[in-house]
C-alpha cells in the first residue's frame, strides 16, 4: 500500500463550529429582517387598526376606545366616497394603460437599435425621479404661466376663461392619470422585460418557423408565457398608484373641489393635518381589503412558476 500523508485524515479533534450549521445560519440570517419587518410593518399595522377604533388625536394622544364611531363618521362623508371612487377609477385606468404601454416599451427596449443607451436613460427618468419632483415638473408643464400646453388647449377651444388645465375636474383627473401612467410605465416595462427575456428563445423561434406572424406570436406565445409577470407588474404598479399621495397632492392638491381627492391623501389630511388620527386611520384601513385582493393576485401569479421549478429540481435529485 502506498503511504498516506499524515495530515490526510479528518481533523476529528476540531469540532464543527456554529458557522457550519445550516439550520443555525438560516435563522441567524433571516431573523434580523423578520424582526425588523415585524416591528416596523406588522406592529404599526396593528396600531393603525387600533387607532381606527379610537378617538385618538394629535392634541390628546391618549387612547380611548370609540367603537365604530370613526367609521360611521366617514361613511356619512361625501368626500370619502368620492375619494374611494376616484382612487379605484384612477388605479384601474392607470394600470390598464401602464400594462399596455409597458408591454410595448419592454418589447422596444429589448430590441436592438442604435442609441439605446440614451433612450433607456430618458425612459428611466420617470421611474427614478422622486415622484414629488416629477409632479412639480408636470405642474409646471401643464398649468403655469410658462406652460406650453395651456395656450395650445386654449387655441383648440378646450380651455377658456380663467380656469386652467388642472382647475377643471375632468381634465384634472385625466392629468393625474397621465402622470401616473407616465411614471409607472418604465417600472412595468422593466418587470416585463424580465418576463420577456425569460421566454426561451427557441419557443419564439419555433413559433416563427410554424408560420406564426407577429400578432399571433404576441397573443399565442408571448402574452400567455409572461402572464404571471404581467400580473406582478400590474399589482406592483397598482399598489404604488393606489398608495400614492404625492402626485395628487402636488399636482392638484386634491382639487378642484375635492374632485381628485384620493384615499391616502385624505387619510393624511384628516389624520395629520386635522389631527384626527382615529378617522385618518379608519380611512387608511379602507386600503386594506383592496390591497389584500392585489396580494392574492400576486401570490397566484408567482406561485405557479415556483411550483414548476420545485418539480424540476426534485426530478434532478440523484
Amino acid at each position: 500500500m502506498r503511504g498516506v500523508p499524515a495530515r490526510g485524515r479528518p481533523r476529528a479533534g476540531e469540532k464543527a463550529r456554529l458557522t457550519d450549521r445550516e439550520g443555525f445560519l438560516a435563522w441567524a440570517f433571516l431573523l434580523p429582517s423578520v424582526v425588523y419587518l415585524t416591528a416596523l410593518v406588522a406592529a404599526p399595522f396593528c396600531l393603525t387598526v387600533a387607532f381606527a377604533f379610537s378617538d385618538a388625536n394629535s392634541a390628546a394622544p391618549s387612547y380611548r376606545f370609540a367603537g365604530l364611531r370613526n367609521f360611521r363618521a366617514i361613511f356619512r362623508d361625501d368626500v370619502f366616497w368620492r375619494a374611494l371612487g376616484d382612487t379605484l377609477a384612477l388605479t384601474g385606468l392607470s394600470m390598464a394603460l401602464v400594462v399596455f404601454f409597458g408591454m410595448i416599451l419592454a418589447n422596444v427596449l429589448l430590441a436592438d437599435f442604435r442609441g439605446k443607451w440614451p433612450v433607456r436613460l430618458l425612459v428611466l427618468l420617470p421611474w427614478t425621479t422622486p415622484v414629488a419632483l416629477s409632479a412639480i415638473s408636470w405642474r409646471w408643464l401643464l398649468d403655469s404661466a410658462y406652460s406650453p400646453v395651456d395656450p395650445i388647449l386654449r387655441d383648440a377651444g378646450v380651455l377658456h376663461g380663467g380656469a386652467s388645465l388642472l382647475g377643471r375636474p375632468p381634465l384634472a383627473t385625466a392629468s393625474v392619470v397621465a402622470v401616473h401612467v407616465w411614471r409607472l410605465t418604465p417600472l412595468a416595462a422593466v418587470i416585463l422585460m424580465a418576463g420577456l427575456a425569460a421566454i426561451p428563445r427557441d419557443v419564439g423561434e419555433a413559433a416563427r418557423l410554424d408560420g406564426a406572424g407577429f400578432w399571433r406570436r404576441l397573443f399565442g406565445v408571448t402574452i400567455p408565457l409572461t402572464l404571471p409577470v404581467i400580473v406582478v407588474a400590474a399589482v406592483f404598479g397598482a399598489a404604488v398608484t393606489f398608495a400614492d399621495m404625492a402626485v395628487v397632492r402636488v399636482l392638484t392638491g386634491g382639487g378642484p373641489g375635492a374632485s381628485t381627492q384620493v384615499l391616502p391623501a385624505l387619510a393624511y389630511h384628516r389624520g395629520v393635518e386635522d389631527g384626527d388620527m382615529g378617522q385618518g386611520a379608519a380611512i387608511a384601513l379602507f386600503l386594506f381589503p383592496l390591497l389584500l385582493a392585489g396580494v392574492i393576485g400576486v401570490l397566484r401569479a408567482v406561485r405557479r412558476p415556483e411550483d414548476a421549478n420545485d418539480g424540476e429540481a426534485d426530478g434532478e435529485e440523484p
Binding site: G8, P10, R11, A12, R17
Partner: peptide, 16 residues
C-alpha cells in the same frame, strides 16, 4: 469513517 475516524457530523472542511 474516513481514515479510521468517524466523520459523521463533521463539516466538509474538516474531512480532508
Amino acid at each position: 469513517h474516513i481514515g479510521g475516524h468517524l466523520a459523521n457530523g463533521l463539516p466538509p472542511r474538516l474531512r480532508r
